[in-house]
Amino acid sequence: MSSSEQAPRLLSMTLNGRVRHDAVGDNILLLDYLRETCDLIGTKQGCDGGECGACTVLVDGKSRLSCITLAAECEGKSVETIEALATNGKMSALQRGFHEKLGSQCGYCTPGMIMASEALLRRNSSPSEDEIRDALGGNICRCTGYVKIIEAVQAAAEELS
């Protein structure tokens, strides 16, 4: 580990629609910033770096692995996490789909899975099954066998159309 200490710097971003300014070290990962500085524990860590998708969030509307992204790279950007999807106390179409179709069993992969699906639906509102598979290719789920995850995304796409 490097001996030199670096002082945190002021980091500004729009997080779940609100502008935030926090003192954050350059070497802090977005995942840790979200969970520890911002108390947004919905975003999960499932692996030791880039291999599972559990930590997927949106940065400027695109899916991104927060466990291998430096928080400081998000300066001035818009970051969205699972906590932002429900509006007026109601689940989003995707959340409802995952809940009602049982796209979530233990729920650990779910925030990442839903955020990756959200990124998909924002750029393609009626994806084919193959497109869903492609968009969720980086998100591992150990419970569902994925069958009901696909149904959940399809149900949400239908509700939105």
Partner: peptide, 13 residues
């Protein structure tokens, strides 16, 4: 649907 499912899909779990 699971009785504790809402927490899971909203990130509250």
């Amino acid at each position: 649907p699971l009785v504790d499912g809402v927490e899971k899909v909203t990130g509250q779990a």
